[in-house]
Write a protein that binds this DNA or RNA. Sequence first.
DNA 1: TTTGACTTTTACGTCAAGGTCAACGATAGT
DNA 2: ACTATCGTTGACCTTGACGTAAAAGTCAAA
Lengths: 128, 128
Amino acid sequence: MNKYYSITELTREFGISTRTLRFYEDEGLIHPERRGRTRLFRPADRRLIQEILRGRRIGFTIAEIREIIQVYKDPPGEMGQLRLLMSRVEEKREELRQKRKDIEDTLAELDNVEEACLTRLAEIGVGT
Amino acid sequence: MNKYYSITELTREFGISTRTLRFYEDEGLIHPERRGRTRLFRPADRRLIQEILRGRRIGFTIAEIREIIQVYKDPPGEMGQLRLLMSRVEEKREELRQKRKDIEDTLAELDNVEEACLTRLAEIGVGT
DNA sequence: TTTGACTTTTACGTCAAGGTCAACGATAGT
DNA sequence: ACTATCGTTGACCTTGACGTAAAAGTCAAA
């Protein structure tokens, strides 16, 4: 069985362009199979793309995403490397926690904006 | 009294460049006062810059940030405009909620990475 | 067999968000 | 008077993440 996805199938599912997927391959993020020159994406490739897009949404660069992928498929074996990796992971987490806070603050602000809008609408409504 | 901040004072506080602040002025995000040609930033400007940087951290573009600022200083008075604004605000909120979820998922993943690292370190430690 | 939908590679274009550099003015310290 | 430090404008440069167009191959349906 082993279903394959075509490139446009995936671009449609994820709302991205073929250029983007080819670009991600050039950048070493994904490695779809080939039949002749044509790319064949397997479920694992699909899941990887989902993760890439998630990384993109939260503002990771291609380089950062590549790095995370590397860690997953090939965790370093040497001690110093491991420690280095861990400290970099901790940095990333701190950054993400900050970002989460930023988002929560902004969501709260947007609540205010919405309320102000509703008030304003009521005023106008009354005047009409 | 009415304290003023100099441009470098602010760049140091926020870890950004003078170019960035001047760029934000060109883009109409801030409007510091002037004494001659020199910019004078007031506390209100400073707070605005903080909000701009928060927007930047969560991935808003300059245009989006400008738009939000506009809403704050000049909420639309016309009904259709208000409805339009509210729907756009709701879109933004949905986007932010998605982003928050992405961040939480990624934080969970980074937990796993860290654990894997610790396990690996223990293995190496034992072998040493 | 021609049309249409899909695929490929190569290569130049674009856009946002600043970086960088030049050339200069104002002010303060030595 | 000289040097440092901080400020200005204006112009071009850079980087990341793709967009877009050209030229061509594959395959199924009409």
